[in-house]
Structures are given as structure tokens and as C-alpha cells.
């Protein structure tokens, strides 16, 4: 951080700016600073196809979702910020905005509720919007379903991109599937807590808080060629279906290729060879 004292004064005096969504650019920089060690050292994230992310203007990044906790969203944010120089505005479930702490941190780091008015508004302002259309079906799926793209939500964010006439960038995230291998689900406890699922992993809940440490899998984030939406007729309801299918198939293909390219999730470090 360049000017920690000035930062502290601005924060304590409330002299910082937020946009109408509550996005606080200065605080986001500080939060990304905290995430960077996780990005660089823990998951060793590598990116591919950065040239496919538009340098400016509205675009919709459509990514696969996995890992029980949305660390993939945070890593995508770091990747786009650090390596593509863009602030991504992610669309999240309303659960995020119901929960204390998470709700305002999500708004302050630029994210908002997954709903057509917000998505359309951000795209119209020329922002890069990110979405995980599988939603809870994707992030809460069992370990043996890994890298299998789930059904896309009906909230129609693809249709919003179609109406806004912005390109769709498919984004495959490989590695998040292995951070919390979900073997079971404490369904009843989840319902009591008002959560969509409560995963059982080899370490959680057996090790308590320690079980929340994500496994250090190797990550790759790859951006595919932008899919243009201007060839479709926004008034045709079938166009949105067709486009959604097209995006989904493209993303699944991309995901398979990137997973093969990564190889094992937990590559063993090269053992020191004894010289004789």
C-alpha cells in the first residue's frame, strides 16, 4: 500500500467515495491485498487467454462455479484485476446479501445481487460483469460431479447481455473443485441455518475450524474467445435459449480442455534427488 497513513485518515473520517451500488474502490484494493497470497502462493493460479477479456466497455464473463465456498469468485476477481486490469462486478445470490458482514463486504467490493435490473444497469455503464449461472447447483455439487457443468439458472443473465448487446466471455476455472471435496451434505442442519447446503468433506466438520482451510489445489483460469450477441434478435425468446445453450457448451468444452492441461490437482513437488 502506497500511503497507509492517508488511507487510515480517509477511512476513519469517512472521506471516501462509493458508487450507487456501494462499490468502494479504495477498500477493494485493500481487500485484494489480503487475497493475493492465497492467489499466488496457496493456489498458484495461472491464467490463460487474457487477450479475450475486453480492455474496456461492457462485457459479461460467464464462469463455472464450484468449491462449496465461493473462493473461485474471489480468485476470478484477483485475476481480472491484476492481470487484465479490470474491475469485475460479480452477481451473487441473495443469500450473500442476507448475511451479516458478507453483505456489505460484497457490495463494497463491487458486487451486487444477481437480477436483470442490476446486471443491465452495470452492463449499460460499460462495466465488466461476472456471473456464475449454475448458482448453488454448481458450487454445492458433490465431489464426484466435479467439472460437470450444471444447469444454468433461469434468471436469464444471458438474456440481459443479449439486450445490452455486449459480448459474453466464457471463463473456465479449474482447481476450485478440489478445495473442499464435498462428500456429503448435512441437509437438516443446513435447513435450520437457512443455508442451501452444509458440506461434509474429509476435514469438515471433523476438524472444526481447521477443516475450513482449503486444500492447496493447483488452479488455472482460462478465458475463451468472446461470444458476440449482436447477431441475435433481442426480442426473440428463443434467441436467449439458443445463446445460453451455446455459451454452456462452449464453457463445458473449455473446462474439459483446461482440466486436461492442468493435470493432477495436487502435483507432488519434485523430490530432491540424492546425488550418487
Amino acid at each position: 500500500m502506497k500511503d497507509p497513513l492517508g488511507f487510515a485518515f480517509r477511512r476513519l473520517g469517512g472521506q471516501y467515495e462509493v458508487d450507487e451500488f456501494g462499490f468502494d474502490a479504495e477498500l477493494t484494493e485493500a481487500l485484494l491485498e489480503v487475497l493475493r497470497p492465497l492467489y499466488r502462493c496457496w493456489f498458484r493460479v495461472e491464467t490463460a487467454g487474457l487477450g479475450n477479456v475486453p480492455r474496456g466497455g461492457g462485457a459479461l464473463v460467464v464462469a463455472n462455479h464450484s468449491g462449496a465456498l465461493p473462493l473461485d469468485a474471489l480468485m476470478l476477481q484477483v485475476a481480472l484485476h491484476d492481470e487484465a486490469g479490470r474491475t469485475v462486478r460479480l452477481l451473487g445470490a441473495d443469500l450473500v446479501y442476507r448475511l451479516p458482514v458478507l453483505s456489505h463486504l460484497a457490495r463494497k467490493s463491487g458486487h451486487t445481487l444477481a437480477c436483470p435490473p442490476d446486471a443491465g444497469r452495470l452492463l449499460g455503464r460499460g462495466e465488466l460483469v461476472g456471473v456464475f449461472p449454475e448458482g448453488f447447483r454448481g458450487i454445492g455439487k458433490a465431489f464426484w460431479h466435479r467439472y460437470r457443468l450444471q444447469r444454468f439458472g433461469r434468471d436469464g443473465v444471458v438474456a440481459t447481455a443479449l439486450r445490452a448487446g455486449v459480448p459474453i466471455v466464457p471463463c473456465a476455472i479449474v482447481g476450485a473443485e478440489e478445495i473442499y471435496p464435498k462428500l456429503g451434505d448435512l441437509g437438516v442442519a443446513a435447513r435450520v441455518l437457512g443455508l442451501p447446503y452444509l458440506p461434509v468433506t474429509p476435514f469438515f466438520p471433523w476438524l472444526g475450524v481447521l477443516g475450513l482451510v482449503p486444500l492447496p489445489s493447483k488452479w488455472l483460469i482460462g478465458f475463451g474467445e468472446p461470444i458476440r450477441t449482436d447477431g441475435y434478435d433481442p426480442g426473440d425468446p428463443r434467441a436467449a435459449f439458443e445463446l445460453t445453450d451455446h455459451v454452456r457448451e462452449t464453457l463445458q468444452r473449455q473446462l474439459r480442455a483446461l482440466r486436461a492441461r492442468r493435470g493432477p490437482a495436487f502435483p507432488l513437488p519434485a523430490l530432491p534427488r540424492l546425488a550418487w
Binding site: 456501494g22 441473495d94 451486487t112 445481487l113 437480477c115 442490476d118
Partner: peptide, 12 residues
């Protein structure tokens, strides 16, 4: 409510 869009227009 947490289920509302961030910015309301007159039609929301």
C-alpha cells in the same frame, strides 16, 4: 430487503 436490486427505477 436483500432480494431487491441495488438501484430502484420507477418500474421496479
Amino acid at each position: 430487503s436483500p432480494a431487491d436490486p441495488a438501484v430502484f427505477t420507477e418500474e421496479t
